[in-house]
Design a protein around this nucleic acid. Structure first.
Lengths: 280, 280
DNA sequence: GTCCATCTGTGCGAATTCTCACAACTAGAT
DNA sequence: ATCTAGTTGTGAGAATTCGCACAGATGGAC
């Protein structure tokens, strides 16, 4: 039995579609289809129903996938172990962080890290969906709340507050009762900064909803209304001016997250302390 | 990370040499060497020391092999699960048995099994070294003592006794005090039938030692001396005659062994009951 | 309705991987 | 000393596998 066939089948079982599995493996979807077929042939067992638009696991397929799942776990543990075994401060370290943090606080300072540790290569992925450290989609992650997954170590390394920002011209020309607002889309209605903004806005109009903080900032800059932005974002931009509204501001903690297996790895430690400095 | 690379490296770690790993995987030794090298490159980690006549795991290699070992376990469990999922009475079933049992009691009757279950293909390996059911080197095994490995199910399905056999001419022409004997080699000195033979032989000469029971029978047939042979072997051969010596004979139990995972598989059950009939 | 994004399937050329045959070397047996 | 069996290493051709480009089909957005 070819283990690569297993790997592809388990990826399919985990991701649900050929294409998603192919993406997660970094191969073509045709390859996944072929390898799953090969595994079926090797086992003389029908593992998937090929429906017009989807692959669906058969009962046998589900059972096999369930039994095989620990293999994937172990494979990821092996990747971490391999990374952890590297005694020199080198290698590729992947950081996952919310896009705004990545762009504004981390990316500009990466050059310093490179100067200090030339052996380290950084892969910085800014994404909203939290990358899985267990699957080693990232070595280090910055998150705005404490993660609960087992095997992960979290350390609070920063805190920032939100404030309302608009363009200087807009703030000067608009009466408070006429303020318009820029907000996250409704899927984010439950996050603290959104609730804070909504409470302040009250019945006043929301003129733009977007899931991207950069878009909110860009909109506010053009004078369309006010957006709730992190201070580190708003204060850094001269085209944005803060509106003081009194009351208790809302803030978010920044957590540095890494996997137990990597906690003693020199390269990971170096990057972790670099990230602490970025957030200090 | 390529799982096939892992598979090859773990096989190397388990078997000790490139060639043995290649045999167990059914590939060329060059392939194993290349895949191990590929894994090292992917992990940027030196896993083996290439010494003139051997591959030796480095410390990192040992650690990786230890962490990865469960993957191999799971892979074998998957193979068993695949076999167990086959609801029809068909597929290839591998039987491991001591060579003499395989040749004399099983092989001659295999044609009956085929008649009853045409879908089943049998692979019969007669070998002294006990095949690993956990690694699915065999689906069913016959052993002469109760195995203790976890996960295995053993059932006592037979019993046979040993007796002394020689050629009729030899028994007639030789005085008891002049008997010579054929025995196992000294690595088998501790098995019951060998101890029994040695006790009876006393100070009389051992003229041949061989690790193969068939060889002992062949030697006894030629009139070189007496051999301790299973009754099912000696009685079936007109060129051998039994020597009654009184006293308590020595016997061995025959155990049918199979893995828990396969216990309900129709094809395996069919072969198991066939083996019971063979030994009845 | 149209457009767009996403999913699976097919055929072909390219890149990779494997096997084979041979070589060099070692340890142990004869 | 010679021979045999077992190990790893090298090079070339063959076999396999992969990715690309395109097709067909579906569901959702507008």
């Amino acid at each position: 039995m070819d283990w690569t066939d297993l790997q592809h089948f388990l990826a399919l079982a985990r991701e649900g579609t050929l294409s998603a599995a192919a993406r997660s493996l970094g191969v073509d979807h045709v390859t996944v289809a072929r390898r799953v077929a090969a595994l079926e042939a090797a086992m003389s067992l029908k593992l998937v129903d090929r429906r017009p638009r989807s692959y669906e696991l058969t009962e046998d397929g589900k059972r096999i996938a369930k039994i095989g799942a620990p293999m994937a776990e172990t494979a990821f543990a092996l990747e971490r172990a391999a990374q952890a075994s590297k005694s020199e401060v080198s290698g590729e370290i992947t950081i996952s962080a919310p896009p705004s943090l990545a762009n504004l606080l981390i990316a500009p300072k990466l050059v310093l890290l490179r100067q200090q540790h030339p052996g380290i290569t950084i892969k910085l992925i800014g994404e909203k969906r939290t990358a899985s450290l267990n699957r080693r989609e990232a070595d280090l992650a910055l998150r705005l709340s404490r993660p609960t997954e087992p095997g992960l170590i979290a350390r609070k390394i920063g805190y920032f507050e939100f404030a309302l920002y608009g363009s200087p011209g807009y703030l000067q020309a608009t009466a408070p009762h006429a303020f318009a607002f820029v907000a996250y889309d409704s899927s984010m209605d439950e996050v603290p900064q959104q609730r804070w903004l909504m409470r302040f806005a009250g019945t006043r109009e929301i003129v733009l909803r977007t899931n991207d903080l950069e878009n909110q900032a860009a909109a506010a800059r053009t004078g369309i209304g006010l957006a709730a932005l992190p201070e580190f974002l708003g204060e850094a931009d001269p085209r944005l001016q803060r509106l003081d509204i009194g009351g208790r501001p809302v803030g978010r903690e920044v957590w540095l997250v890494l996997h137990r297996d990597l906690r003693r790895t020199p390269a990971v430690r170096a990057v972790a302390s670099f990230l602490e400095d970025c957030l200090a």
